[in-house]
């Protein structure tokens, strides 16, 4: 267990249940899950579609309330003490979720605007992030004039511009073509590592999880940790292959369980 001061996220016996839309009772999306994420760590959360990854994401973001258990982000209850985490969490969603009526720079400025930051300084910050992500010259373009990759860059810039302590990513590159996703992933990782931020990266791709995570958590439905592994920065190709095979087995065992 990490030292208390170095913990960014804690989940203690967290369960989340939802009412079924047809009124036929409840289903459990997250089942008594416990884990910690230390500051500066990048954790890749891997699992099949519907295993509860996004529920965990919403719980950490404070968008959803746990049915039972305790969650803290930087020592704060993200749902109960919602406003206390203002400016501390940056989120990159699966889709770019840009506001179509705002230009690229105005989209990046959104978080800073909400924080009430000085407009001039904010603009300089937003321009800086757009430039870092290769979008200099596109500041005044509306989202419809940008490609999918460019839009996702804007959404990354929007998340990083508020200088959050924690970055949450929900399959941010899954809608992009492989080449664009690879390039963007590398840029994103560089920026996160440079600023030594904590990140939780949700994905359903084993290769992506192996590439981004300092640690990989594999979830089984309903969300509970089925496998966990540290990924050393100097991981050898053999170890990578071994991990890949192991994760495939873990995910495959869930398929077997479902079929049985």
């Amino acid at each position: 267990m990490a030292a208390p001061g170095s913990i960014a996220i804690t989940f203690q016996d967290v369960t989340k249940t939802f009412d079924r839309p047809d009124g036929s009772g409840q289903f459990t999306a997250v089942d008594r899950i416990s884990f910690e994420v230390t500051r500066g760590e990048i954790v890749a959360v891997l699992g099949k579609t519907g295993c509860g990854k996004s529920t965990i994401f919403n719980l950490i973001a404070g968008l959803s309330e746990p049915t039972s258990g305790r969650i803290t982000v930087e020592g704060i209850d993200p749902f109960g003490d919602f406003a206390a985490l203002r400016g501390k969490i940056g989120i990159v969603f699966q889709g770019d979720r840009l506001m179509p009526w705002r230009t690229a720079i105005d989209n990046v400025l959104l978080g800073l605007d909400i924080l009430g930051a000085d407009r001039k300084k904010s603009e300089a910050t937003a321009r800086g992030w757009l430039a870092k992500l290769g979008l200099a010259g596109h500041e005044n373009d509306y989202p419809h004039a940008l490609s999918g990759g460019m839009r996702q860059r804007v959404s990354i810039a929007r998340a990083l511009a508020v200088d959050p302590v924690l970055i949450l990513c929900d399959e941010p590159f899954s809608a992009l073509d492989e080449m664009t996703a690879q390039r963007l992933r590398a840029e994103f990782l560089r920026l996160v590592r440079e600023s030594n931020k904590t990140a939780l990266f949700i994905t359903h791709s084993i290769d992506e999880a192996l590439e981004v995570g300092d640690r990989i958590m594999v979830l089984h439905r309903p969300a509970r940790i089925a496998f966990e592994a540290k990924v050393d920065g100097t991981i050898t190709p053999e170890r990578r292959l071994e991990l890949r095979t192991r994760i495939l087995d873990v995910l495959g065992s869930e398929t077997g369980r479902e079929e049985a």
Binding site: A61, G62, L63, F82, A83, L85, R86, G87, I89, I91, F93, G95, R97, M99, W101, L110, G111, D113, I114, L115, V162
Partner: peptide, 24 residues
């Protein structure tokens, strides 16, 4: 709903929420 959740995640005040999302 996507834009609503994205904006809420920044934890705006009610007035800011109205100004940046609801009104447009």
């Amino acid at each position: 709903k996507d834009l609503f959740e994205m904006t809420v995640a920044f934890r705006p005040t009610r007035w800011t929420m109205f100004r940046v999302l609801v009104l447009p």
